[in-house]
């Protein structure tokens, strides 16, 4: 039966959006935790460690997210682990986020110049102490704007799991489109909901990086 796009459908979409948000938060936190561990190792670890982390990043960034999602989905069942699609979705998005966050944070750590390290050396701080008290606090500060900017990508990336049938915002839109045949109304609403989440994040990121630039002058 063909239905007309109505207020109830908007509620349905918003319910999908809560899954989009949950997935975004999960994959940002898990991916972020992995990257927090690996980014410093990527810069300072022994060279086999650096090379493997770099290889991991290169490979993930050369694979479409959709394929990572499918690999996680079927990889889990290959290992005889049968979990709901939420887990495959969460794992693949986390992997993807981790690879990009490692690169972003690596850049931030490397942006802290040699003199800062040398100042730490001169104060006889150990490597860990230099990281803890000198390098990471500064890297953290410049990392905030691009990290907030990356959240926009995380939110948008969750849409891909619609293609394994996980009912988040985009999938909810697809389902509605199938019963209403009003693609304009449905997908414009979907797009508007994404925009309402992403645009404030973009603006925040832009503002934060502007503030850092001003402070540097």
């Amino acid at each position: 039966m063909i239905q007309t796009f109505s207020w109830d459908h908007v509620i349905f979409l918003l319910r999908g959006a809560t899954w989009t948000l949950s997935l975004s938060i999960i994959s940002f936190l898990v991916g972020g935790a992995v990257a927090l561990l690996l980014a410093p190792l990527r810069v300072l670890g022994p060279s086999p460690v650096r090379a493997s982390i770099s290889g991991y990043v290169q490979i993930v960034q050369a694979t479409p997210l959709l394929i990572v999602v499918f690999l996680a989905f079927y990889g889990l069942s290959f290992l005889n682990i049968h979990l709901p699609p939420l887990f495959a979705a969460g794992i693949s998005l986390s992997i993807y986020s981790s690879a990009f966050l490692i690169e972003i944070w690596r850049g931030c750590i490397q942006a802290i110049g040699r003199p800062q390290w040398e100042a730490g050396d001169a104060l006889a701080l150990s490597l860990v102490q230099q990281l803890r008290y000198i390098i990471l606090p500064q890297a953290f500060r410049i990392a905030i704007p691009p990290t907030v900017g990356f959240m926009v990508q995380v939110v948008k990336n969750t849409s891909v799991v619609a293609l394994i049938g996980f009912v988040e915002l985009t999938r909810a839109g697809q389902l509605l489109n199938n019963i209403t045949f009003q693609p304009f109304a449905v997908f414009l609403t979907v797009a508007a909901i994404y925009f309402c989440v992403c645009f404030p994040l973009s603006l925040t990121s832009k503002y934060l990086s502007w503030r850092i630039n001003v402070a540097h002058r």
Partner: peptide
């Protein structure tokens, strides 16, 4: 801003 703050998949569907 519109295209950078909405997913490619939704743009494709539109």
């Amino acid at each position: 801003e519109v295209f950078r703050n909405t997913p490619l998949l939704v743009q494709l569907f539109l």
